[in-house]
Design a protein around this nucleic acid. Structure first.
Length: 487
RNA sequence: GGCGCUAUCGUCUAGGGGUCCAGGACAGGUGGUUCUCAGCCAUCAGACCGGGGUUCGAAUCCCCGUAGCGCUACCA
């Protein structure tokens, strides 16, 4: 089948966020693709925290990222909190491993200490650029005489460690983009261990991916140009490189990379969470931004995605994040959700009075109003007519009640409803009709005042249903209040 | 500058040589919806970056441009 992993055996994938901010929607999609791929093929999902940038990393940020992932419902088999046989899962706790690997490269003369300082490097870079040469490291510390190198090392001179790049072309068979070739000579000797002893991204990443037995690296396209460096590290270490799948970027409206540093609006998963978007909708939107199921379904649940996700059906071009479509999808998901699900998503945002209801009643109520929800934020307002003793009268509704003999109609309705033999949606409906017929009103001029009196609003679920939910006693009281001009 | 990636309606996309005067969805227009709507239904408008090839035939394959983006750090 086309969805099977290209290699035999259960895949091991990883999601490797750096805890330097909040979880980005692009990161969420990457995490989801990894998760879908592994779960679909009976594989393992590893969470690895890439916190080698001590300046920008923070525990609070890590927690924030973890919270967002949990909110999305993406779980991991191995990670800092899950544990596992390849730990630790924070790069800051794996420093010994990197030093060990670096030391071996140095012993095998595949890497060498570099004593050049930032200023010199920067100056030479500029010169090279100005002269039209590639701004690569010129390799001067590689050419140092063994005695000089030993002496400077012995003197404790600060230095980084650079990988000696083997002159050859590097190619990879990317799972979403196909074969990609990097010609010889486009990367210079690069730093693997910084002078502060911490590994660089490309080094730590390659060391960890191989040490953790990762079989498939699914990540954003921005990492594609880094891949040859990681391939070089794997080769120098004598370890087999994983397979790679570079998924396209999520873009701003101006087609630049949706960045968390530019402070672009709503690039954070948390922003959408706070905006009342449900995880199921965000995940579906994100997955379909780049992945196509092969048929014309436009919203896919996690279960449906699990059945059809295939890296071969991930597109190759970047896509603009369309908040409008996300909102549409959110509304769609909300309109089709069950009451229990809605209650779970709403959580603390659900009004206390609704939470206090018996589960069955709460679910019936939520299912009655779901058609009017665009986001979870609409919940309190939509629920108010059913939960509050005297729901506030909105201006539109007040105008309806003030017009013509709307109040008289309310009085008639109150009397008729009070005497209704059996309180049911059907009974309410026919009673309203009967009263309407007697007064020569139907359609909107009949239902609108009733709705205004009953809910204080001019929109909402079908009126008989509303009445059923509100109950006879409150219906009659609200109609009487309206008739008497008390509401 | 170098290297890489990408290129179909405003946006997300389908399409992989003829079935495509290009299909679906969001947004937009219009109409409808034995009570309302942000709901639902119907309907309209809207695109193959350009130029060369290959071919009986190209949105689809090849080449060259162009444009956008990404990377080119002792950030990730």
């Amino acid at each position: 089948m086309s969805g099977s992993p290209p290699d035999a055996g259960a895949p091991r994938v990883r999601f490797a966020p750096s805890p330097t901010g909040w979880l980005h929607v692009g990161g969420a999609r990457t995490a989801y693709f990894n998760w879908l791929f592994a779960r679909r093929h009976g594989g393992t999902v590893v969470l690895r925290i890439e916190d080698t940038d001590v300046e920008r990393s923070s525990a609070a940020s890590e927690q924030g990222v973890l919270d967002d992932l949990a909110w999305l419902g993406l779980d991991f088999d191995e990670g800092p909190h899950e544990g596992g046989p390849h730990g630790p899962y924070r790069q800051s706790e794996r420093l010994g491993l990197y030093r060990e690997a670096a030391e071996r490269l140095r012993e095998e003369a595949k890497a060498y200490p570099c004593f050049c300082c930032d200023e010199e490097l920067e100056e030479r870079r500029r010169e090279a650029l100005a002269a039209g040469r590639p701004p690569h490291y010129d390799g001067r510390c590689c050419a140092l005489a063994p005695e000089e190198r030993a002496a400077r090392l012995a003197a404790g001179e600060p230095h980084s460690l650079r990988l000696k790049v083997v002159p050859r072309e590097w190619r990879l068979d990317d799972l979403v983009r196909g074969p990609v070739v990097f010609p010889e000579g486009v990367v210079g000797d690069f730093v693997v261990l910084r002078s502060n002893g911490l590994p660089t991204y490309n080094f730590a990443c390659a060391v960890d991916d191989t040490a953790m037995g990762i079989t498939h690296v699914i990540r954003a396209e921005e990492h594609l140009p880094n891949t040859p460096r990681q391939l070089m590290v794997c080769a120098a270490l004598g370890r087999a490189a994983p397979r790679y799948a570079h998924v396209p970027l999520i873009l701003n409206r101006d087609r630049t990379k949706m960045s968390k540093r530019e402070g672009q609006a709503a690039a954070a998963v948390g922003d959408w969470r706070r905006a009342g978007i449900v995880p199921e909708a965000l995940l579906s939107y994100l997955a379909l931004l780049g992945f196509h199921p092969g048929d014309e379904r436009e919203v896919l649940s996690r279960a449906e995605l699990l059945e059809c996700f295939d890296l071969a059906r991930v597109g190759r071009s970047g896509s603009i994040f369309d908040a409008g479509k996300l909102r549409w999808m959110n509304a769609h998901v909300l309109h089709h959700a069950g009451g229990a699900e809605l209650a779970r998503w709403a959580g603390e945002a659900l009004p206390a009075a609704a939470r206090a209801l018996p589960a069955a009643a709460r679910e019936r109520l939520l299912e009655a109003v779901r058609g009017n929800l665009a986001t979870l934020l609409d919940l309190p307002g939509e629920l108010a007519p059913f939960l509050d003793e005297r729901p506030a009268l909105e201006p539109d509704a007040a105008a309806v009640l003030a017009a013509g003999d709307a109040r008289a109609l309310c009085g008639e309705l109150a009397a008729a409803l009070e005497g209704l033999a059996e309180w049911s949606e059907e009974g309410v409906k026919s009673t309203i009709r009967t009263v309407g017929a007697r007064l020569g009103r139907r359609g909107r001029e009949l239902f609108e005042p009733a709705r205004a009196a009953l809910t204080g609003r001019v929109h909402g679920p079908e009126l008989p249903r509303v009445a059923g939910l509100i109950g006879r006693e409150r219906c009659v009281r609200r109609l009487r209040d309206a008739a008497a001009g008390r509401s």
